[in-house]
Amino acid sequence: MSEPTRIPLPSISSRAWEHPADRGALVALRKLRGFDVILKQLSGFLNERAVRMLLLGSAVRADERQFARVYRLYREAGEVLDAGVLPELFIRADPTINAMTIGLDKPVIVLNSGLIDVMDDDELRFVLGHELGHVLSGHAVYRTLLAALLALSTTLFAIPLGALGVRAVMAALLEWQRKSELSADRAGLLADQQPQVALRAHMKMASGGRIDELDPEVFLAQAQEYHANDDVRDLLLRALIVETQTHPFAVVRAGELDRWVKSGSYQAVLDGDYPRREDDADASMSAEASAAARHYGEEFSRLDESLGRVFSDLGRGLGQARDWLADRLRDLSEPRPRDDRERRDNPGRDDRRSGPPEW
């Protein structure tokens, strides 16, 4: 079977695949001139050298001679995304289905052996495109800030009222990081350009690789069901469940990527309608902030509607409980004649006890 032709995307800006909530934060942070340079220099001075030394000693660096198949797929993903010089790629012995991007100044991509064992070539290209998306968006810079805050959190919690502030910042950064994963999924899809392949990759991540027992339509229906119920209890439970998660669930990610494809945005990029890197410096912070605000506005409107329904139902329930209680109190307040008094007051009444017993 011939391999499908992938459309190259020359000079594509990472803004083409970034989720609105992710893109708004990134455009704002990119305006802070020098901020990323300082972080990169601090990280590259010692920490990244230590990580790379650890990988050189314990993992395998992929190239044309080692893991040549994986490296070829990596180059193909980089060519479609016009990534230029590719970060180093390492394969490490780990049975979990996972991959990661590490480093700020000179990022490296690490694939676990467990991921290579269960993913076919197309699925690996999607995963590699996902990791390249993180690199090209510069997500590692801001994840480092999150990691620093998490490390400092135990100290800041000891400061009066400090816990509330740091928890709010951490919650916001974790929410951004989850959205950055949705952005990287879009980059992975653009690198491979086969939506059914991206879906298969998410199905394998969710099931531990047992895709032969899964159905794509049912899997996507499950993703829709996760978001279908707008009951306020489910909305709050979803928020609490993911509050400390760095990644969205695999099922949810599959549904989000499917919605992006169906929105027409994916096809528009393939048709050449996407922002270019040369225009990144002119990206409007207010426009991206507005896009992010619209996204969260839709989320909050669903919450608002759900709250309205809950309070309406609660009001009806309280009204019914009030009416029932009033009826019971009224019954208790009315005097009830005793049987012997009824017989004296009503001498003509039949004495039912004089007849045959009732069964």
Rank of each mutant, 00 (worst) to 15 (best):
E131F: 10
F126A: 09
F126P: 06
V141F: 14
P95Q: 03
E64W: 01
L29C: 08
P107D: 05
I91L: 12
R52H: 11
L46I: 12
V127E: 00
L32V: 11
G34H: 08
D94C: 06
R30K: 14
F90K: 06
E48I: 10
H19I: 05
T101W: 01
A59K: 04
D36Q: 15
D63Q: 06
V108P: 00
L145H: 05
V37M: 13
T144A: 14
V60S: 13
M119Y: 04
W17C: 09
D105A: 10
D121S: 08
L132N: 05
A21Q: 05
Y74G: 08
L32R: 12
K40Y: 03
M53H: 15
E79W: 01
L150Q: 15
I38L: 12
I109N: 00
D36H: 13
A50G: 10
F35Q: 08
A140E: 14
A140S: 15
A148E: 10
G78T: 00
Y142A: 11
E79K: 10
S43E: 13
L73S: 00
L39K: 09
E64K: 03
E79Y: 08
P20E: 02
G78M: 03
A16D: 09
E64M: 05
G57L: 14
D63F: 06
P20L: 06
L81M: 11
A62I: 00
L124G: 11
G129P: 04
S137C: 14
L124Q: 13
P107Q: 02
G138P: 02
E76L: 11
P107E: 04
A62S: 01
A59D: 02
A140M: 15
L132R: 01
V127M: 05
L39D: 08
L132V: 00
V108M: 02
A21T: 07
A68I: 04
V70F: 09
S13M: 10
E79L: 12
L128Y: 03
S137N: 14
D94K: 08
V118S: 03
E123L: 09
G24A: 13
V51A: 11
L146T: 09
V141W: 15
S43M: 15
V37E: 15
I109S: 02
P20N: 01
L46T: 10
R125P: 01
E48N: 13
V27P: 04
R30S: 11
L132I: 04
E123F: 08
